[in-house]
Simulated scan of single mutants.
Amino acid sequence: MSSAKATIEARHYDVIVAPVITEKATIASELNKVVFKVRKDATKTEIKAAVERLFDVKVEAVNTLIRKGKRKVFKGVRGQQSDLKKAVVTLADGDRIDITTGL
């Protein structure tokens, strides 16, 4: 049983890549919302399950968005940033996640 739980936990860690710490995300945290970078193929239900299992909170809603990669020039070399998927997770009243402490 413990090996099955370990594979579930590993899958949850793979869904969430990193928290987003920006001014806009900090303002959203006052409204019980937390922003995460997630895998591009992650679904809303997978994101909800991962956040609930990893942080032991109740998730009310998950909104996702995909930011298209920008074209950049660095030292005369053209390149393109990769696409990025973010998830805005709304928590139930009374639940909080302190993303500065890490997992």
Rank of each mutant, 00 (worst) to 15 (best):
D95T: 02
G69T: 01
T64V: 05
E30I: 01
K86Q: 11
L31K: 09
A25L: 01
T100Y: 13
R11E: 13
V73T: 11
A92F: 08
E23A: 05
T45C: 08
T43V: 03
V57F: 02
T26I: 02
A87I: 05
D41F: 15
V88N: 03
K85N: 05
T90A: 08
A6C: 10
F55K: 04
A10L: 10
D56G: 08
A49Q: 14
E60Y: 00
Q81D: 15
V15K: 13
V77W: 04
L91T: 01
K58C: 04
A18P: 00
G79C: 14
G69I: 03
V77P: 00
F55H: 09
A10K: 15
V73Y: 07
G94R: 01
D98S: 05
P19E: 00
D14E: 06
A18W: 13
V77A: 07
G102Q: 09
V73W: 10
I27M: 03
T7W: 05
K37H: 10
L103D: 10
I99Q: 11
E30Q: 06
S29H: 05
A61V: 13
F55S: 00
A28V: 03
I16R: 10
K68N: 03
K40M: 08
I8V: 08
E46K: 00
A4F: 12
K37Y: 01
F74I: 14
A6L: 12
V77D: 04
A50M: 12
V20N: 00
K48C: 10
T100C: 05
N32W: 10
E30M: 08
E46D: 14
R71W: 03
M1A: 10
K85V: 05
V15N: 07
E60P: 11
G69C: 00
L103Q: 08
R53W: 15
I97N: 13
I97F: 15
V73F: 11
T101W: 08
V17H: 02
V59H: 06
R78N: 07
D95M: 00
V17Q: 07
Q80L: 02
I66H: 11
R67M: 02
K68Q: 05
